[in-house]
Nucleic acid binder design. Structure first.
Lengths: 343, 343
DNA sequence: CTTATTTTTGCAACCGCTTTCAGATAAGCT
DNA sequence: AGCTTATCTGAAAGCGGTTGCAAAAATAAG
């Protein structure tokens, strides 16, 4: 109950020991339950801890035990709704495991990512979770030899047993989206694609293309405009698409954020969704269920994946088993797609 | 250039010293630039470091120097767009300062927050940035006596010099919103309020009420429905409001997320925004500029505040000066408000 | 080529906690 | 009570760095 005396210099275990009239070893043992200690001494020590407001120094402990109790999480943008979900999952997956996350953003810049890794290593993280990014594969593979590495959103060959990479079949999902649109009668389908150096963006584009070709419709480069995964590029791209292809009846955006931009562009042009133009996104951001109309999108189970990855690395670290997990992309049908009206 | 030999056991400074044929102290001095060292030795040591792939152990260093180089960041929900922005700002504010953030979520649960603090203290963070939350004031004050504390989103009296709390005048902003609506002829204005235990929510409600009363319109409890700051509660609240007050022409939501819910509810009921119903949110989330129509909202400069707070604590830690900063709430006029149509 | 200085180095003592090892205590039996 | 065995406890040696101090080496001065 009693509050500690607030002091500048943190209290050390030795001081607690002196206060309680026992040796440091004893205090340590009580703290960690490493050995039986007479009840009387336990009481004295606990009292001393309380009185002094002692908080163990994690550094000293880590140094002595060689275990840092933390896992490095390399994300790309901490403010991104997309990665944010995954972070939330990781956090919950780590909860109660005794490990805590050390989160750093790489901003899709390789050297930022390298710095992050540097920091992780100097902070002796015991495992690594990597969300996307551009780190060269060989580097990841090298890391995987030193500690468990879990990668999300990239397919990387990790020969090491304790590591894993979790990726979704983006191409397949995009393929399904376009087929869904084709099934509803749409023939001229625009695509807002993502950055050319982004593997997922490429996969989605490939799925779009393949679906068209498999159904016998030629792929038209003019119906694809490249964006950067942010809203403004979706807006501009859509204006462009609509201007050049008045007969276009559906747009498949490579992510939700660009779909939002598209939605606004259409609104501005007086085109209704879905009556005049069907719209499909990708990612199923939390907000997408509340756009007007609610956006049909491909759900990526970010939180679940993050959660599982966290539990995966913990399992590696503690030598437990973990049930495998194959996340699935799922087309969330909402209200932004309508059958093509026959002219 | 040469890559290190990947080894299980991390290389230590002593090993580097042996390899280079110098004493550990010398290596340490080279690493930290603590003293002049003969160029020849520097070269040998650098070569050894490279060859062995040596990475200093941050724990050992922290233990020896007493400086952890990290600042604790207590957020509430890492996946929230709202706090996410602030985190991004903090990250950028810390960048290049030599300090790195240790981020933990409190989930608005006091005991989670206490745990976070515990972890921060055991990890010996050198400063603390707290985003919202429910930690009792006395506790914050106590912490502020031990290290620089920067609080965002709560007004807390921190007598200690090195600490600060940054809060915005939510009541004033809400007051302005409602006046803006009144100026446009709206008379029956609904309010979707936030959680009752949330200071900002209360302030916004108070501003709403005061604006009405100051203009001579009685406050009607029936026009206020309480939500939880999430979309569904905005949706349900709006349905309720519209059903009970057919003459209502505007809704002021205590945050954007509930406004999104409201927007959808209106869409479902066939009410147009802004023609049939004006809508104003609060927070100006990144997505709000891309809703249909773009949402009029109150912008909270989260990223800027985060950035400044980070720089503030760094300034405290390094004994520098920092220019004061008074963040302002700003009404972002967009397209979700129209003058009331005269019946 | 000494001698007085100024640089460079290395030794050794911490930083705060864990852990092995052995001695001290307490408990169990005859 | 005397001896064995099982429990507790403390001394001391690290963990991997940093740093004050003094010795050693290099440089400047006489």
């Amino acid at each position: 109950m009693s509050q500690s005396v607030s002091s500048r210099q943190p209290v050390t275990l030795a001081e607690v020991a002196r206060e309680a009239g026992v040796s440091p070893s004893t205090v340590s043992r009580i703290l960690n339950g490493t050995a039986q200690v007479k009840a009387a001494k336990v009481a004295q020590v606990k009292a001393a801890i309380e009185k002094l407001g002692y908080k163990p120094n994690a550094f000293a402990r880590s140094l002595a035990t060689g275990a840092s109790g933390s896992v490095g999480v390399l994300t790309q943008d901490i403010a991104s709704p997309f990665y944010g979900d995954a972070l939330g999952g990781i956090e919950s997956g780590l909860m109660g495991s005794g490990y805590s996350p050390l989160i750093i953003s790489g901003h899709w810049r390789t050297d930022d990512e390298e710095h992050a890794i540097e920091l992780f290593m100097s902070r002796r993280v015991e495992a690594l979770i990597v969300l996307g990014g551009h780190l060269p594969e060989h580097e990841l593979r090298q890391l995987a030899q030193q500690l468990p590495v879990a990668i999300l959103g990239r397919r990387v060959d990790l020969p090491s047993a304790g590591s894993i990479s979790l990726a979704l079949d983006n191409q397949r999902a995009a393929y399904d989206v376009v087929n869904y649109l084709l099934d509803r009668g749409h023939r001229r389908i625009g695509h807002l694609s993502g950055p050319r150096d982004h593997a997922d963006a490429l996969a989605r584009l490939a799925g779009y293309r393949q679906a068209l070709e498999d159904r016998g419709f030629p792929f038209q480069p003019g119906l694809v405009v490249q964006g950067d995964f942010h809203e403004p590029s979706g807006l501009i791209g859509t204006q462009q698409l609509v201007a050049q292809h008045p007969d276009m009846t559906a747009i498949f955006s490579a992510n939700d954020q660009m779909a939002y931009g598209a939605r606004l562009a259409l609104y501005r042009m007086g085109l209704r969704v879905p009556e005049d133009m069907s719209l499909v996104g990708f990612d199923d951001l939390p907000g997408s269920a509340y756009t007007t109309p609610p956006l049909t999108s491909v759900r990526q189970p970010m939180a679940e994946m993050g959660h599982w990855l966290a539990r995966f690395v913990v399992a590696q670290l503690t030598g437990q088993e973990i049930t495998p997990f194959q996340p699935q992309l799922e087309l969330r049908l909402r209200e932004s797609v309508a059958p093509r009206r026959l002219p």
